[in-house]
Design a protein around this nucleic acid. Structure first.
Lengths: 223, 223, 223, 223
DNA sequence: CATGAATGAGGTTTCATTCAT
DNA sequence: GATGAATGAAACCTCATTCAT
């Protein structure tokens, strides 16, 4: 659900455009050993990001935590940005897994069931790793990952839009794109604020109530 | 409207808690000359943040753009964080002006009029300086301004909650805090996504439609 | 007693000789007000040196503690070194007062009485302000005060030497300069180590014992 | 012989206690290349300290003189203080070598022979590198090396005390600790003043005379 | 004379990145 | 491929000193 939506605003019109360091992985890491190293590096980065914050995530520290040398890091990632980008990518994939599954399951369901499911999955997605989510969200503009996040957002929008179209007969007359935009925004926002601001004291009871209420709002809006 | 709501999630449980640099201004800058310098510094910082991004906002560069020496910067701000905090503070005040005024005006109005106003002001607030808003939002966790932003959020929540209480007779039976949370989230989110993702191609027509739709959603939810 | 003796070793053969900043007071400060300001500055410097250490003794801080502006500081002292030099001068005068008085009193006395007096006065001199003494001692090479300290040392040496000459009949056959050097070294050293290393737990009883022992050593040496 | 005795007075009751920068070496530098770099850095620091003074010993300058980059300096030393501490450590070791050897050799000897040896070694220790000795002595309080120097002093005191105890039958009745304190102070002081104030014009003849006289004083005192 | 805002050289330290081994 | 020592630009910040008011 536009998980990183709020960061998709382009920074590209900076007067001084710094040459962005390369961000594509250097090799396919097809070999097993390589793959393990790459994973260790990504995992180490994620862990540092979560536990110590972005400032502490130096390449040397990442390599150290991953148990390899800096040299090896640069064997697989051309720059620091690239490794952060990989972490973003991995997190995105996890989130996308949830979202795509949910949207597939929802296909034939009536609007109220469907929305409830989407709200639930949005909260679930934010709960995968709230802190990582947050740190990554902050770092996206720096890592030149805007494009990928936009793509992600567009995909969500399209999926929701497609679903809504298939249910047009249950809905009042409304521009489908607009409705999708508003629904996605509202759902994502409630999920985001719920999880990021109240993560620690979130009971299942409270989650249920929030899902109920948000569903009511969105369904009420669509019908 | 919880303008920075999504950044109030606490980072305080980092394993390694870095000593936050001081963020309170060093002098009151009551004299005229001082005041001008301080203003120039804040203004320069805002400009750099918007045009060149956070990375370029080094203290030397800020001083240079402000047309003063680094020494002067440190005469008034004890750290780099402090000056970013000041920019946040200034921006917050502007936003707060709008929000408080709107909430005052709304006091006696029925829910539909009130919500429309709130939606409109949320969008307006985001349009004051969308790019600055965005960069600041990203930097808030770094500047130790979370507390102030939380206070801001709480104030908005309380004001909205108070308004809703006064209109309980127009509303269905619902927990007021919950309703306030959901409304504020939804409104803020639409405003945020609207402005930050589509700032350049935003016509007044579109804004009107968005206000209409969001109002419909929120009002439908409350009644 | 060669109170700063160990710092009189010349640094003047540094390969790169920095232009020493001027150290002579700018004006005679004859007026009353001026005198008060100068005193306040010297006193503030001494206090900071003692309580916060040399690193904290910036000119701005000195002026602040003295309750005047930095500008005023520079009205009376041409450089930071100059004000530290003034503090050294003031402390030296105090010490010198004690030492000269003691040497005058001692003039007609036999060696054992005289030495006892000198040892006592050496300890007393170190106890005037042990911490200030220590900090100043460290700073002397930096302040270009070596010459003055040398003069101070020479004066002490000469006074002691003169005394010893007058008592040659009580002494064994020995080079007077050599004897003076050794006596002054020994006395000063005991006083220095006693006070600086054990200042806090120094009882009058202990001082007496130390005076007894040192006197015994020196007198035994001379006879 | 309490080579740095006069600097062991504690500064720890400063009102404002600055966080001391870390002073322990960062790596063991077991590899060859590392070792060479570390040595070059320590050597460069010592050289600058001696030839240009403490003020000129900036980290950049040290690195430059050592022929490495600043980065390398910080690879091995966590702060500027740490490298000065290392220089102190190295110098201390040299001095300690002499002192320990002398005290071992002296073990079975009668007091007069032993004292002569100790006086001689004290002067010898000061002559290893008088200028370095001096600069380091001044810098010890700044480098948080007080503890180590105290330990050094205590060791010397204990060794001397132990020797004196073994020779009690040759001595008059006197508190052994007190006697050790006074002897060590006197010997160290003569050595210090002799070498630091007259280093350049010190003939072997003069040294011999000084050793004779100091020995006479100390032995006379003990018997 | 006094004030204190302003200056800016220079100090310490970090960290992404390279490259000899 | 892997290692980790080395690099050095650049960031933050201090403080002695000046000078307009």
């Amino acid at each position: 659900m536009r998980v990183f939506a709020r960061f998709s605003y382009s920074h590209s019109d900076h007067k001084i455009v710094a040459r962005k360091p390369p961000t594509k992985p250097r090799k396919n890491a097809s070999q097993q050993r390589s793959r393990a190293t790459v994973d260790a590096l990504i995992e180490a980065t994620a862990r540092i990001l979560v536990k110590e914050g972005f400032e502490k995530a130096s390449t040397n520290r990442i390599a150290e935590v991953a148990g390899v040398s800096v040299g090896s890091l640069y064997q697989y990632f051309p720059s620091k940005e690239a490794i952060v980008a990989a972490v973003i990518g991995r997190h995105n994939e996890e989130v996308m897994g949830l979202v795509r599954t949910a949207l597939a399951e929802v296909a034939g369901l009536p609007i109220d069931k469907a929305v409830r499911k989407l709200v639930a999955v949005a909260i679930e997605a934010h709960r995968i790793n709230p802190k990582l989510h947050r740190v990554l969200a902050e770092q996206i503009p720096r890592t030149g990952q805007l494009a990928e996040v936009e793509a992600f957002n567009r995909e969500v929008h399209t999926l929701v839009r497609t679903y809504l179209e298939s249910r047009r007969n249950e809905m009042r007359k409304v521009d489908i794109d607009l409705a999708a935009f508003i629904c996605v925004s509202a759902i994502e926002s409630v999920a985001h604020n719920t999880v990021l601001n109240h993560a620690e004291m979130l009971t299942e009871k409270m989650v249920k109530v929030l899902v109920d209420e948000t569903t009511r709002m969105v369904v009420g809006y669509l019908r």
